[in-house]
């Protein structure tokens, strides 16, 4: 179970990075970045997860409610989800600006230094 979860975390991170490195479109690249980002969210939740623990909501509980999963990690994960959304939106806006100025979204054509300059 835990091994599977960590494997999925690593897989998402690697796949996201692979997509970013091979991407031919900035919008595609930004979405791949968000996949890599969700790997971190999942890792945070997985670290805070307790087998058979219930959600960290402390109202209407029975006398002996048993363990809860770690709420701190959920708070961190929540922060990262929102932060990731902001970063993705910002990157998409930048990509639109790039397209407006250069007419392309292909990172291969978007060099900051021209290859043939002396």
């Amino acid at each position: 179970m835990t091994v599977l979860a960590f494997a999925v975390v690593v897989w998402l991170f690697v796949v996201g990075l692979y997509g970013m490195v091979t991407s031919r479109n900035l919008i595609h690249l930004v979405v791949c970045l968000s996949v890599a980002q969700s790997a971190t969210d999942l890792l945070l939740l997985e670290i805070g997860y307790v087998g058979h623990g219930h959600a960290p909501v402390f109202v209407d509980l029975p006398k002996h409610p048993g363990p809860t999963v770690d709420s701190i990690m959920q708070a961190l994960s929540l922060t990262d989800v929102v932060l990731g959304a902001a970063v993705s939106a910002l990157l998409l806006a930048l990509s639109v600006q790039v397209h407006k100025r250069t007419g392309t979204l292909d990172p291969d054509e978007l060099r900051t230094v021209e290859p043939n300059r002396s």
């Binding site: 990075l17 970013m20 900035l26 690249l29 970045l33 890599a36 980002q37 970063v87 910002l90 990157l91 930048l94 990509s95 600006q97 790039v98 100025r101 250069t102 990172p107 978007l110 060099r111 900051t112």
Partner: peptide, 15 residues
């Protein structure tokens, strides 16, 4: 200025 410099900055720092 080539705006893609900002994209490189943003993507690498986000990673």
């Amino acid at each position: 200025a080539p705006l893609q410099g900002a994209i490189n900055f943003a993507v690498l720092n986000t990673v």
